Amino acid sequence: MHRRALLATLASVGAGCLSSAPKESTETETQTAPKSPTQTEKTATAAMSDPIELDVHNETEEPKLCQYSIRQGSDTILDGEIEVPASDFTPVDTGIEETGEYELNVAVDDIGQNSYPFSVGNYDLRMGSNLVIWIYENQIQMGMEE
Rank of each mutant, 00 (worst) to 15 (best):
A8L: 12
V56A: 00
T60Y: 00
D109G: 09
S69Y: 03
A107W: 07
D110G: 06
C66I: 12
K35G: 08
T28D: 08
I133G: 01
E61V: 13
S129L: 06
L6C: 13
N122P: 13
A33Y: 13
V132R: 03
L6G: 00
I135F: 07
E62S: 15
A44Y: 09
G128R: 02
M48Y: 09
P22M: 10
I70A: 05
P85G: 10
Y116G: 03
G112S: 01
T76S: 08
N58T: 06
Y68D: 11
A15N: 04
I135D: 01
T94M: 01
Q72T: 12
T94A: 04
K42H: 10
L18W: 10
G128V: 03
E62G: 10
D124L: 06
A33F: 10
E24F: 15
T45F: 10
P117L: 06
H2G: 15
A44F: 08
D110M: 06
P51M: 04
R4V: 11
E59I: 09
E59A: 07
L54Y: 01
I70L: 02
G121T: 13
T26G: 15
D50Y: 14
S25I: 03
N138C: 05
D88V: 11
N130P: 00
R4N: 09
Y116T: 02
K35E: 04
N122S: 09
E62R: 15
E97C: 06
E97D: 15
S74Y: 07
E29F: 13
C17N: 05
A86L: 01
G100L: 04
E24W: 12
G128N: 02
E97L: 15
D75R: 09
A44I: 08
D79L: 05
Q31S: 14
N122F: 10
S36V: 11
Q31F: 13
G112D: 03
I96A: 00
E98Y: 11
P91C: 03
A33C: 12
E83Y: 06
E41I: 01
Q67F: 13
V13A: 10
Q113Y: 10
T99Y: 03
K35H: 00
G73Q: 05
P117T: 03
E103M: 14
T38Y: 00
M127Y: 06
R71T: 09
L78T: 03
M142F: 05
T43K: 12
K64T: 05
D124W: 02
V56W: 02
T90Y: 09
E137P: 04
L7H: 08
V13S: 08
G14T: 14
M144A: 03
L18N: 03
I77G: 02
K35N: 08
N138E: 11
R3Q: 15
I140K: 01
L125N: 02
I70K: 05
T30R: 08
D93M: 11
S19Y: 11
A11G: 10
G112T: 02
V56K: 01
T60E: 02
Q113R: 11
M1H: 12
I70G: 02
D110L: 07
D79F: 00
